[in-house]
Amino acid sequence: MSMQPASTEIASRTAAIIHELKGLEGPLLPILHGIQEEFGYVPQDALPVIAEALNISRAEVHGVVTFYHDYRSQPAGRHVLKLCQAEACQSMGSDAIAARLKSLLGIGFHETTRDGSVTLEPVYCLGLCVCSPSAMLDGEVIGRLDDEKLNEIVAEVRS
């Protein structure tokens, strides 16, 4: 994608993050979180830089990055909407909510709308089981989802 930074720039910004966090015990996850926060995803070009700095193989870094659901291989949309699909939300109709949202946005889970406005992801529990069905929009929590709230969310991400 044209919006993604050049590999030399990725390497230098990655090195700065590593420098800051390398002293921690078990620094890899904090470093990966830092990189995802910096770029919005974990670029392939960052992996060899991490591997060298931590003296582990690229395969090991790749293995860790791909193990965890949080790390993205590509940038997300401008908004990220996480919809809870776990049991407590199921008991309050989260399946129907998911179906409605997918049709309103025209995308499925793990997809980004074509205009890049929003990425839709399932999440298995936000700890908001007292106000199911629940969701998280860019870190903001939303409970007791219904059609009215879905319409508000869709309007917000499209604006």
Partner: peptide
């Protein structure tokens, strides 16, 4: 220290 997971149940 506080450490943050990465979405693995």
């Amino acid at each position: 220290e506080v450490r943050v997971g990465a979405g693995a149940y």
